[in-house]
Design a protein around this nucleic acid. Structure first.
Lengths: 114, 114
DNA sequence: GAATTGAGTTACCCTGCGGTAACCTGATGT
DNA sequence: ACATCAGGTTACCGCAGGGTAACTCAATTC
């Protein structure tokens, strides 16, 4: 056989927190889309439903709640009537935008490559 | 009521391809982990199983196959006996690493923030 | 000749997550 | 008086996707 556990010894100096845990920030259906559509400013619940077409109210509201708990977005109720609710990225949330952008760029290149 | 569809008109100049589609590059359990663990070089099937503890052979092999089809990783069979198989990131695949890194950094900050 | 190894594959089960549809609340417009 | 609107919530259902366990195959070593 000859090898078994040669060279490679799992080169992982704990960078901070583990990937799985960090990636779970973006977990749940439409989570990245929500962040993406908030990248250019606050939007309201029903606007987001239209922005992200096949998302159901149930899932959107669940996702918004989670993202808020994770510290990625903020919820502000506007004293109109009926009250409308605006969601926007927190400062940390905004830091995710370039990361998503980078992913989109790679995705784009992969599509062009054939 | 007063508003209905005020100001915001979905500020989306199609950046290239849509987010959902691009994000699907990373879809499936453990996909980001596979990329992450290949970031510092090629690794073999059973090494990856050990690197990413609770992944089953079935899912790992499915994920590797998908990532390969997507053009993110390459598979090389080494003529040893029994043959061992090395997986490594393609050039496009490597471009995903900084994006994942950025996400990890935000995740880390969120954890520290309390 | 039996056991081990690497790299999977297959059959089976089971759960969680998302979709659909209906409903709610309080203030306003007609 | 009634419908409408914003922003949800709730009950129910279905299935895709992951886990487990057992098996394969060929070459090698004991």
């Amino acid at each position: 056989m000859a090898l078994k556990v040669t060279k490679n010894k799992s080169p992982k100096p704990p960078i901070g927190c583990d990937l799985t845990e960090c990636m779970s920030m973006l977990s749940g259906a439409w989570a990245p889309n929500v962040i993406w559509h908030l990248r250019s400013g606050a939007r309201r619940f029903n606007e987001l439903r239209i922005d992200i077409p096949p998302v159901s109210a149930k899932v959107l509201s669940a996702r918004l709640k989670e993202l808020q708990e994770r510290g990625i977005i903020e919820r502000n109720v506007m004293p109109t009537s009926p009250p409308s609710v605006e969601y926007q990225l927190t400062e940390l949330g905004m830091e995710l935008v370039p990361a998503l952008q980078a992913i989109v760029e790679v995705g784009h290149k992969l599509k062009m490559r054939d």
